[in-house]
């Protein structure tokens, strides 16, 4: 464990909490993609299946439970809460799950470190996490005017990924024999997806203007 990894995990948690608190406080999920949230829930469940028998550290176990729990709450709010569900922008959140899930499933069967069920599910979760933000980015693009909290949510998520890359660089430099190609490449692709958003986020911040994405 190094400081970059720790910062990454905290930023990840913070991004989820920002979203959850926004929904809870405003009783609105306008601008939030349910597709992305459900994909993240699928990512967490398939990756953290080992929670019950593969104890690594209390730190990891607590984060796993918190990530699954908080993301479940967001999905619950968006699907079931009597006021929140009315604010869900379903007409614009039309990205197809299958376009992301199917290629990730096929890829995890073809490229994995070990051919067994849990390893394949773990690999699937790595691939799926890399692209799970796409429905949210498409929704932002469509609605143009991005409210502050939604913008901050995506920014914090991107920052979390950037810190994971720093963590890998640090580990590569300090841990003999450390390598994780599958995770690195997926992680680089995932972080790359945020670059465009980052550009507009920083521009808006520099000009103290409301974040607006171009068409």
């Amino acid at each position: 464990m190094n400081l970059f990894r720790f910062a990454g995990d905290i930023l990840h948690l913070l991004s989820i909490l920002v979203l959850l608190l926004k929904i809870h406080a405003t009783k609105s999920c306008a601008g939030i993609s349910l597709k992305t949230q459900e994909l993240y829930l699928a990512v967490f469940i398939t990756r953290y299946l080992d929670l019950f028998w593969n104890f690594h550290s209390l730190y990891n176990s607590v984060f796993k439970v918190v990530y699954i729990g908080t993301t479940s709450m967001i999905v619950w709010y968006m699907r079931r809460h009597r006021n929140v569900k009315l604010t869900y922008d379903r007409d614009h959140d039309t990205f197809r799950y299958l376009f992301l899930v199917a290629p990730c499933a096929v890829l995890s069967l073809l490229i994995n470190a070990r051919y067994n069920l849990f390893e394949i599910l773990w690999t699937f979760s790595i691939y799926l996490e890399a692209v799970a933000i796409l429905p949210q980015l498409v929704l932002l693009q469509r609605t143009k005017n991005v409210d502050n909290l939604t913008g901050n949510y995506v920014f914090l998520l991107g920052l979390y990924r950037a810190f994971y890359i720093l963590n890998w660089v640090y580990r590569f430099a300090t841990e003999p024999g450390y390598s994780a190609w599958l995770v690195w490449i997926s992680g680089l692709i995932q972080t790359g997806l945020y670059l465009d958003f980052f550009y507009y986020y920083v521009q808006a911040w520099k000009q103290s203007k409301k974040l607006q994405l171009p068409s």
């Binding site: 990756r47 690594h56 990891n60 773990w122 995770v183």
Partner: peptide
């Protein structure tokens, strides 16, 4: 790597 894969990151 040998044996069961260990995934120490989240």
């Amino acid at each position: 790597a040998s044996g069961q894969e260990t995934h120490d990151e989240l």
